[in-house]
Structure formats: structure tokens, C-alpha cells
Design a binder for these strands. Structure first.
Lengths: 193, 193
DNA sequence: CCTACCGATCGGTAGG
DNA sequence: CCTACCGATCGGTAGG
């Protein structure tokens, strides 16, 4: 039971850290800020985590692991390339709605990682990008997609979806379903009539 | 002549600051880092700028002023809404190619602004968003655009374009013209055939 | 989980 | 434009 309590505290620290990093950036968040949010002294947090850097690592790799798992799921689907891309974008949006703070850290604060950890994160991200790019490339080759530059299409999609994490709140007048449908319409069918 | 020299140094400080903030974030960049990049001691920079916060302000408002000027230009064009939106997206991409570091700071580090300055920046950004949204809304009303949610379309476009600042380098195998054309195709005509 | 504290580094100033 | 330095705050540790 003490173990369950400890790991709950640890998770609380990670969750609050993600929120603060999103709000003020990794560099703009002090361990004293975080401690106040969690409800303990800064020194006490070191019973649950090793360092400020470890917090950043855990959040970043939680996000990149999730992304890669989603890619693997979609790759194994029996579907057209358009359907696969649609499924991957959908999962992307879903993750932002469910875990926006962590995604924000993985998008913006990963650059504060150092050494091997930084390299490992970059590698994970590149792997995801390559997998996504392959879907687009095959979709073009199969005649399902417009013959655009693959890199441009990839980053336009990944980027187009990013604002959700900054914007979406449960109180919005747009439901997650509408949101997903609207974004999908713009990216796949275009805004113009 | 001494005035010209001084303001050139000041500009150099601002340019190097934008690059460093983009690379390491405002919170992760020290005045000593910046001084080393500029080629003087930290203390000496205070002959050219008032504070670290002033540097951030100058960069952020340079960007927001440019955006608002571009919006005004486009609003005064005699053209269809689709053409206006196309023109505004084009200017957006152009600015990122020409002044990517400053745009990055205006996108990511504005949150380190404080007090009235922070409020003024938020107001400028909101003004730009409202102007852009109005173009989309009128485009839908005129039957030129798909009847999507205006906020979703606005942020999808603004966001879709943001990766250019992270990705574009003169050495890329894509020219600025191709880049613009490809992004425009995806956003306006859609990726799917 | 806290009090007390460490060395390092921060943004910025004084004085020349 | 530099040397020398300020008070404040940083991430983190010792010891209980």
C-alpha cells in the first residue's frame, strides 16, 4: 500500500509538471513552483523523482512511446492508405484531447533534454515521421492521394493537428467528434469548394 | 555615425537573441550565452538594450506588427475570399522563410512576456485571428468555402503553416515556391484525390 | 516529508 | 565596452 501511495504521488508530480511546463516552459518552471503545485516542499519531491531532468524525460518518452504504438496499430490495419492516414490523424487528435499537457511537453520542451536521452528522443520522433511518411508515399503511389511533396504533406498534417492541444477544452462549443471531422475535411478534401 | 554603429549592434543583439531563443527557449538562454554569441561581455549589452525582457518584447512585437500589416494589406485587396486567404497564407509562409527565428519567438516564447506587455501581445494576436476568421466566415457565406467550423478552419490553417519555420532551410530540395504551392494544395484542395 | 543549507548561476548595476 | 560584484534564485543534498 505504501508503494501504491508513492507511485500515485510520483504520477501526481509528473502530471502537475506537464501542466506547468506547458504553461511556463521547462526553463520557466522551478522545482519550487512545482512543489507548491503538488503541495510539498521542493526537497521532498526528491523522494519520488531523481531530478528535474528525469521528470522531463519521463513525460517526453511517455508521449513518443504512445505515438509509436499508435503508428504500429495503424500499420497493421487492413485498409486503404487514405483510411490508415485518417485513423492515424484521428489517434493523434485523440491523444491531444486526452493528454494535452504531456503532448505539449513532447512538442515544445523536448529540446531541454540532453546527451543520449536527447538523441534517443530524436530517433523516436524520426521513426514516427518515417512511418507516417511511408503511408503518404504509398498512398500517392496507389493513386489515392494528390502527388504532393511527401515531406511537405507530412509536416503540414502533423503541424495542422498541433493547435488542438493549445485550443481544446471540454467547455468548447465543438465536440471532439466535430473537431476531428472538420480537421479531416480540410486536410483530405480541402477548404475550398 | 556612432548612432548607426550603435543601432547596428542593437540589431545584432536582437537577431542573435531570436536565434538563441528559438534554439533553447527564452528561459534556457542566459544573457551570458547571448553575450558570447554577440562577442562581448554580458554587462556590455546593457549599453544597447534595457533588459532581457525588453529583447523579448521587441522581437515579439516586431512579429505581431508584421502579421497585422499583412492582414491589412490583404483586407484591402479587390479579390475573392479564396484569393485573399491564399494571399494571407502566402505572406505567412514568406515571413517564416525570411524571419524564421523571430516568428518562432513570437509563436513560442511570447508566454514569458509579463504584465501590460503580455496583454498587449495577446490583444494583437486576437486581432489578427479575428481578421483572418472574418475572411473565412465571409468565404463560407459567399459559398466559396466548405461549411466547416470557422475556428477549426482558422487554427488548422495557422497551425499547418507553422512547421515551415522549424523545417525550412535554404539547402532543402523544395523551393519556397513549391513549398507554398504544396501547402496551398493540401489546405484548399485537400490531400485526397 | 521538512528545515537548513550548499555551490552555481542568474539578470543586472557601479564605476571606470 | 570591461572588471568586479550585488542580491536573488536555481537544482539539489544532508540529516533527521
Amino acid at each position: 500500500m505504501s508503494k501504491r501511495t508513492n507511485s500515485a504521488k510520483r504520477q501526481l508530480i509528473l502530471d502537475e509538471a506537464a501542466k506547468l511546463f506547458k504553461l511556463k516552459g521547462f526553463g520557466g518552471t522551478s522545482m519550487r513552483d512545482l512543489a507548491a503545485q503538488v503541495g510539498m516542499e521542493a526537497a521532498s519531491m526528491y523522494n519520488h523523482i531523481k531530478s528535474k531532468d528525469e521528470i522531463l524525460e519521463l513525460i517526453c518518452f511517455h508521449v513518443s512511446d504512445t505515438y509509436i504504438r499508435q503508428l504500429t496499430e495503424v500499420e497493421q490495419m487492413a485498409a486503404t492508405y487514405v483510411e490508415k492516414i485518417r485513423a492515424l490523424i484521428g489517434r493523434h487528435i485523440q491523444l491531444m484531447i486526452e493528454d494535452g499537457a504531456a503532448v505539449s511537453v513532447g512538442n515544445n520542451d523536448w529540446k531541454y533534454l540532453t546527451g543520449d536521452t536527447l538523441e534517443a528522443f530524436k530517433t523516436a520522433r524520426k521513426r514516427y515521421e518515417k512511418g507516417f511518411a511511408a503511408l503518404i508515399e504509398q498512398g500517392i503511389a496507389a493513386g489515392e492521394l494528390q502527388p504532393v511533396n511527401v515531406s511537405v504533406a507530412l509536416f503540414t498534417i502533423l503541424s495542422a493537428v498541433r493547435w488542438v492541444e493549445l485550443w481544446y477544452r471540454p467547455g468548447r462549443d465543438v465536440t471532439p467528434e466535430e473537431l476531428e471531422e472538420n480537421i479531416m475535411t480540410i486536410l483530405l478534401n480541402g477548404l475550398a469548394k
